[in-house]
């Protein structure tokens, strides 16, 4: 199924999404990768305020290339980064901020999968390495927070139009495309080992 969604994304819209669906997303998304996740977790611990944009957000695992021109930031390249590095931190952020959707590449682990199910959120994959492609979908940089972390690690707030096709790969019902593929891959590997004369 192909769905066009706009932010803020509602809980009902998230629940409807199933593994294998395609999403085109419009509206506001925020980037967060290693350092932003670490800082958000630390701020939760010491009860310090994080930027409002985290609440009910769509989080994009991305460290963009940006350039400042005439005082304004411009996106040069902004594809997804490997999500797995955020695995030990993401579930806490989903719980605390009610993150509705995570966009990244490569999938995440069981802690995140559990949080997606419990707090009704979804993980979508976008093709890795496609930094130039995504610039077509980013209409504007609305704001930037935590720029002291450096441009790749800062929290960029993007306005996007029809960002996609995003593949729903971990849904709010426990569906997990990466696990399905992995199961098949392990079976195939066993067959490869048993038929080494073929290779």
């Amino acid at each position: 199924m192909i769905t066009h969604l706009s932010t803020p994304v509602s809980k009902e819209e998230i629940i409807k999404l199933k593994v294998g669906d395609m999403v085109y997303l419009s509206g506001k998304i925020i980037t967060a990768r290693d350092r932003a996740h670490m800082r958000a977790k630390e701020y939760i611990r010491i009860d310090k305020k994080v930027p409002n944009e985290f609440e009910n957000s769509v989080v994009y695992h991305c460290g963009p290339i940006v350039k400042k021109k005439n005082g304004n930031w411009k996106v040069i390249s902004a594809g997804p980064t490997t999500s797995y590095r955020m695995e030990s931190l993401e579930h806490e952020l989903i719980q605390r901020f009610g993150i509705k959707m995570i966009i990244g590449k490569g999938g995440m682990g069981e802690k995140t999968a559990k949080a997606l199910k419990e707090f009704k959120s979804v993980y979508c994959s976008f093709t890795g390495g496609t930094g130039a492609y995504v610039t077509q979908n980013i209409k504007k940089i609305l704001n930037v927070e935590w720029l002291d972390l450096g441009t790749p690690e800062a929290v960029w707030i993007f306005e996007v139009l029809d960002f996609g096709p995003l593949v729903v790969s971990m849904d709010s019902h426990g569906g997990n495309l990466y696990n399905e593929v992995n199961k098949k891959v392990i079976q195939n590997y066993q067959m490869i080992l048993e038929s080494t004369n073929k290779y």
Partner: peptide, 21 residues
């Protein structure tokens, strides 16, 4: 297909193919 389209955009607009240079 997205990968190949990305290559064309990067080439035409002289943009880094991937943001992780």
């Amino acid at each position: 297909r997205i990968i190949l389209e990305n290559l064309e955009i990067a080439k035409t607009k002289s943009l880094p193919i991937c943001q992780d240079t």
